[in-house]
Design a protein around this nucleic acid. Structure first.
Length: 540
RNA sequence: UCCGGAAUAGCUCAGUCGGUAGAGCGGGUGGCUGUUAACCACUAGGUCGGGGGUUCGAGUCCCUCUUCCGGAGCCA
């Protein structure tokens, strides 16, 4: 929907264009919106729709002083709008009132505003229409903008007229807490709830910040394919799909393609969906998730860590600038986010293992998982209710003391312990090579480890970035391919990159959903993506 | 796949020792001119997840299946 500032200057367009183009039957069959008050207008005959649909009588369609605005627009420029009449188009979020006054909470996508309808200000038909509105009815309201300290936004609207555009009967998500399964089944509606609305707006900002960061550092966006002929990393389970007469797989990483692109453009990144068919059932796993993967020619591991650190700081800073109040409302400890500043601690895997084991021995290891103190329920209001819910107990006093090992990857527990020791992301580098992907370069100073890095978000959130310097030597790469029992032939294009002007290069993959969960302080990644795909959820 | 937990009104839940089913919210009706998850009164709403068993009697005990939730492994 277009938004206009100031009075309408171009001819208004019928919102309902398809059904207005003289398809009388279609138009008649749809519920005729109830219009209760014809706004005074002397030029109402212009732009009339040939059918008797509501657009022609909508206040917006008349050339009056009232223009259509969003709640955000009004809030941004309150000095200009105060005392002016505006029109809002949105949905009824909640309603309270008496026989003489009605308080409508109207959301329009940009915000939620209270509209007051007094019996003394409007005609009876309008007042009764307001009284009878149900949750999520779509409505168009006109009224005067007024400052008021009783409003959370600092202003409200004194309604003068009201049109119901669409009805909404038995809206399932009532303004009370619901269970996760119930809400996930109705994710298409849950998106409208304040909390979910806020989270997806923060997600938008995070993705935009990531793109802005790379764009402003001379990176080129290169889109990686979704269909791939073979496993990129060989370890994870892939989704297999028929591809004409052969089999294809949904990509689990754009990484290899980014290596090719980096040899063409120097600095590149991709940002797209990734698919893993692993049967993971945890709060940090999805079968379909989004990843940003930068790749840079002539970059070594230290440079790669610099890049990851700088990028994350920019993203956090940007989110804090735009969403500090939103994060507060989500229950996020904003001060903890403000501490996310360079430099991030850098530990070798070996040092990290020692640190973890010392903590386990001292009994200071904190295994609680991130966000565990909160339960996942939701009301349509901000999650004040959630914060008052009884805490769930998650301390695992009985958990066996499993010590970290030099020759093995971290488990979730170890990651959690480590990430709780620092107030900013931790970069753990040089993991044992045998637990890492074939394309990672071995450390020339210690062939037991790979030149790789995992960035663990603090507060128990764990891994949000995995990166590495890539093996640029043809012979060594071929050895790795054989050792991992991958096909030299199908990776021929990839090994070509080492035949024709190979250079040191590095990159990483940043998980969008885990980053959103961390920044928003969420318990589970399923709330960070509009329509989560998990092991046992493909709907809606 | 493995280990735990759960399933009762549209939703969130309670239901004691095995004795014929409860609340709040939501819906409906009425009341209230500044409400903030509004409030007050009245009202409708149930195959207690499916199947089997024990018992005079099962929401409650046992077996089984299904679904969901949490966790592990793997990973971003």
């Amino acid at each position: 929907m277009s938004t206009r500032k100031g009075p309408t200057t171009r001819p208004p367009r019928c919102l309902n264009a398809p059904s207005c183009s003289n398809t009388a039957a279609a138009s008649r069959s749809r519920a005729m919106p109830r219009r209760t008050r014809r706004p005074k207008s002397s030029t109402g005959s212009r732009n009339r729709c040939p059918e008797r649909c509501f657009e022609r009588s909508s206040p917006a369609m008349d050339e009056s002083t009232t223009a259509y605005h969003t709640i955000a627009e009004v809030g941004r420029d309150l000095d200009r709008f105060e005392g002016k009449e505006v029109e809002l188009r949105g949905w009824l979020y909640n309603k309270r009132g008496s026989g003489k006054i009605q308080f409508l909470q109207v959301r329009d996508g940009t915000g939620t505003l209270q509209v007051i309808l007094s019996r003394s200000d409007v005609d009876e038909e309008t007042f009764n229409l307001a009284r009878g509105l149900s949750q999520e009815s779509s409505i168009i309201v006109r009224g005067l903008v007024a400052r008021d300290t009783r409003s959370a936004l600092g202003f409200e609207l004194h309604g003068k007229s009201l049109i119901q555009v669409g009805t909404s009967e038995d809206y399932p998500i009532s303004p009370k807490p619901h269970g996760v399964a119930f809400l996930m089944d109705r994710r298409h509606l849950w998106l409208r709830s304040t909390r979910q609305h806020t989270i997806l707006r923060v997600r938008h900002t995070i993705i935009k910040a990531i793109r802005d960061y790379f764009d402003s550092h001379d990176f080129v966006l290169i889109d990686a394919p979704i269909f791939t002929p073979n496993a990129c990393e060989g370890t994870s389970t892939l989704f297999e799909v028929p591809y004409f007469d052969e089999k294809a797989y949904l990509t689990q990483s754009g990484q290899l393609y980014m290596e090719a692109a980096a040899m063409a453009h120097g600095k590149v990144y991709c940002l797209g969906p990734t698919f893993r068919a692993e049967k993971s059932k945890t709060r940090r796993h999805l079968t379909e998730f989004w990843m940003c993967e930068p790749e840079v020619a002539y970059l070594d591991l230290d440079g790669d860590m610099d890049l990851a650190e700088d990028c994350l700081c920019y993203v956090v800073e940007t989110v804090l600038e735009k969403h500090a109040a939103d994060l507060e409302r989500l229950g996020r400890d904003v001060e903890a986010l403000r501490r996310i500043k360079k430099p991030f601690p850098r530990l070798s895997h070996r040092e990290a293992v020692d640190l973890i084991n010392r903590a386990i021995d001292d009994g200071t290891a904190d295994r609680r998982s991130a966000g565990a103190e909160r339960t996942t329920t939701e009301s349509i209001e901000d999650d004040a209710a959630q914060l008052h819910k009884p805490t769930t107990k998650t301390d695992e006093e009985t958990s066996p003391k499993k010590r970290a090992r030099y020759d093995d990857d971290f488990g979730g527990d170890e990651e959690t312990i480590l990430s709780r020791m620092f107030d900013r992301p931790v970069m753990v580098h040089r993991y044992p090579h045998q637990v890492k992907a074939f394309y990672m370069k071995r450390d020339p100073d210690d062939p037991r480890v790979a030149l790789c890095v995992d960035v663990l978000a603090p507060e128990g959130y764990g891994e949000i970035i995995g990166g590495a310097q890539r093996e640029d030597d043809l012979e060594k790469l071929l050895e790795r391919i054989d050792a991992h029992e991958l096909s030299r032939e199908s990776l021929g294009w990839f090994t070509d990159l080492r035949r024709y002007g190979s250079v040191p290069h590095a990159g990483f993959g940043l998980g969008i959903e885990r980053t959103v969960a961390w920044i928003c302080g969420l318990h589970h990644v399923r709330e960070t993506i509009p329509f989560a795909r998990t092991m046992d959820r493909l709907k809606p």
